[in-house]
């Protein structure tokens, strides 16, 4: 191993790592290529021996979505690496395919703000499959950027990206745009799902509304909720004694019969 001036190294594998290369480590190179320390303007790099791809993995054991997208664009074209893409992708949990190439190409069209959010939440390629359905991402970017300021979690974000994407594909952009006049994320989610799932939303709304027509015992809170492919009645009860429990069970039994008469049970 030897140190060589940074200026003598080529930068075929240049990409923009999100974090600067640690100051405590030298820049690293392989043959006549710089591999790590791209942010350094001067100094030298330690040339590593060995095969390029395993060395790259040691230098970058994890890559974010943006970093993967950049490095994939380089590795898929460079003569040293383009025939070894599967070997390069595997430690990052990915398999080479035309579908993956297509995905990374789509990722280039995602707005920086959205990409930044995806990176922070550590999204994976499969979380963003919806992108593949679009030829242009202009409308998608526009709407998703409106969602981000609400501070969404990863799982909720992934779900809502897909719902919004599908609504765009169903030509419902204007309806979706209207929704962003609402302040609450919960309410936005309800409205988005109402447009995407109109029949089942209407049914659940009806079921929820009808609950108020029954004589529920005190300190019993009924709720219709969706669980997978069915809706269920959820009850929260506060019980103070054996008698209280008995009494409430009798009253609930009557409510149950009434619900059945009204055909409220799915």
């Amino acid at each position: 191993m030897e140190f060589v001036p940074l200026s003598s190294l080529k930068k075929d594998f240049y990409f923009e790592p999100e974090k600067p290369w640690p100051k405590s480590l030298p820049a690293y190179g392989w043959q006549n290529q710089l591999l790590a320390g791209f942010d350094r303007k001067e100094g030298s790099a330690l040339i590593l021996n060995g095969d390029l791809i395993p060395l790259f993995h040691q230098l970058y054991p994890t890559l974010s979505l943006i970093e993967l997208s950049q490095t994939f664009a380089i590795f898929s074209k460079h003569p040293e690496t383009r025939s070894h893409l599967q070997e390069w992708l595997e430690p990052y949990g990915l398999k080479f395919s035309q579908r993956l190439i297509q995905f990374f190409e789509k990722l280039q069209l995602v707005s920086p703000k959205i990409l930044q959010w995806c990176n922070e939440k550590k999204l994976r390629a499969r979380d963003l499959e919806i992108l593949n359905a679009f030829s242009s991402l202009n409308d998608f970017n526009f709407l998703i950027e409106k969602l981000l300021p609400y501070g969404i979690s990863k799982s909720r974000g992934v779900q809502l990206f897909e719902v919004i994407g599908e609504l765009l594909l169903m030509n419902k952009k204007d309806e979706v745009l209207q929704i962003f006049t609402i302040n609450s994320l919960d309410a936005i989610e309800v409205e988005l799902k109402r447009i995407r799932f109109p029949l089942s939303s209407e049914k659940l709304t009806f079921q929820k509304k009808e609950l108020a027509n029954f004589s529920w015992p005190s300190h019993v809170k009924p709720q219709w909720i969706r669980k997978g492919d069915s809706t269920k009645l959820k009850l929260e009860m506060e019980l103070s004694s054996f008698d209280d429990f008995e009494k409430k069970l009798k009253l609930l039994s009557q409510v149950n019969l009434n619900m059945q008469k009204e055909e409220l049970w799915p």
Binding site: I130, A133, S230, T231
Partner: peptide
Amino acid sequence: RERFGMNSLVTSAEMFPSNDGKLRYEQSL
């Protein structure tokens, strides 16, 4: 979705995860 868009009755269907992992219509439907 990629092959048929969202105008298909299938891709636009209201489907939910069922116990066996598949997406299905609501049980009541």
